[in-house]
Simulated scan of single mutants.
Amino acid sequence: MRRRGLTVMLGFAITLVLAVLAGTAEVPYVELSPGPTVNTLGAVDGSGQACTELSDSCQEVIQITGGETSASKGQLRMTTVSVSSSVSLLEAIKGWFSDEDAVVPRTLIYPEDKDEKQVEEENRQEFEASQTSAETAALRYLGFPVKVAVSEVPADGASAGKLQAGDIVETVDGVEVSSVQKLLQLVTEKPAGAVRQVGYTRDGVKSTVDITTKAGQDGNPKLGISIKTTQPNPYQLKIKLDKIGGPSAGMMFALGIIDKIKAEDLTHGMVIAGTGTIDDEGRVGPIGGIAQKLHGARAAGATVFLAPAANCAETVGNVPDGLRVVKVSTLDDAMAALAALPSGAPLPSC
């Protein structure tokens, strides 16, 4: 009996050790959880923590000079997702049963052909691009349109002898050119060889010219010009926020810029959170981790959440109590929603 008892105890110990090893062994998954939220109207220190007194180590998230700015009583909070790249089996099982967290295959976040540093660098670049688009979209909303200017006309291009460096491209076949993306869209609507009427301004004088497009190396129709954009305005804008990556804060940055420049308090004293990419035209695009961002927003005190329309299906069953989710597709939608909040008027919801 004694030998049998020792055998049972040894077997139990071995089983326990194997269970512990299995539970702590890493699995090919990552865990997504609610990340920090940041008030785009506030100030942060070098570590990204909120602070109240401005100093060398505590600076406004959105810095604007060149014109008057205003302060709001409420908050416009951008939201983030924290990624745990090393996940054990036990942690994965716990995450699968969590309402706030999500466990997804590692390759969805870190593709096999890229290491973590490469992904982080891409996220950093996307974050910087989102800031630029946010500035462009916000200034456009405030009445400072983007101008698409000709920077060069190759001698063998379709526009040789018709357009010249410095011309501002205003229209294509009567449709306004409001951004580089819009110009490319308009030009590619008809095949190479089509005659396009291009409206332009040269030295303050508006004119039109017919240009027959040519096929480029990719086969797409080209006007045969190099272009650059300008957006004349009195402001100098800078967004100061480190250690955050990806493009999903674009919409909230745009709203923050508008709120600081306009005299009105867009927040109405409320804590409003949101997420969504934004392009130069003010279109709001989908993001990842919407469920985690909803919970992070509520934990930060938000009662309203602006969500991209394309993410609405993912919010079902993931909205914490006390949080109202508003569907937006454009910057105009977001501004209209903020304006309607005090009146209690119906808003498009997910």
Rank of each mutant, 00 (worst) to 15 (best):
F144I: 02
Q63G: 05
V316Y: 14
D101V: 15
N318C: 05
D242A: 13
T303C: 01
T15L: 15
G193C: 11
G296K: 01
Q164W: 08
V17F: 11
E26H: 14
R324W: 08
Y29V: 06
A300F: 01
D56N: 12
D115I: 13
S349T: 15
E31N: 12
V284I: 13
G35L: 04
D167H: 11
P28L: 08
G289I: 01
K293W: 02
S248A: 12
A300E: 06
V81P: 00
A273C: 13
Q118G: 04
G66C: 08
A299L: 06
F253C: 00
E120G: 07
L90Q: 11
P308K: 07
G216Q: 11
L255C: 10
V326S: 01
L347V: 11
I244S: 09
A19L: 10
T330R: 01
V209W: 06
I244Y: 10
A310D: 12
K214R: 15
G289T: 09
G250I: 14
L266M: 14
T79Y: 04
A297R: 00
T107N: 14
E68F: 10
V271C: 00
A254Y: 00
A43M: 15
E135L: 00
Y141N: 13
G274D: 02
T212H: 08
L16G: 10
S57V: 15
G23K: 09
S85Q: 07
K114G: 06
A19M: 11
Q197E: 15
I109Y: 09
S178E: 13
S133A: 15
L54R: 06
E128Q: 11
S343G: 12
C350E: 10
G161M: 15
Y235V: 09
D242P: 04
K73P: 04
L139E: 13
Q197Y: 06
V20F: 12
P247N: 09
Q236C: 05
A254G: 03
K206F: 05
A334G: 05
L21A: 14
G157I: 03
Q125G: 10
E314I: 03
A273S: 15
I14E: 00
E112Y: 10
A310F: 05
I261Q: 03
K240A: 14
G35H: 01
L90A: 11
L90F: 13
A149C: 04
V87E: 01
T229E: 08
I225Y: 04
A309E: 07
E128P: 04
I278G: 04
Q236W: 09
G174C: 07
I287L: 08
S133L: 13
E100R: 14
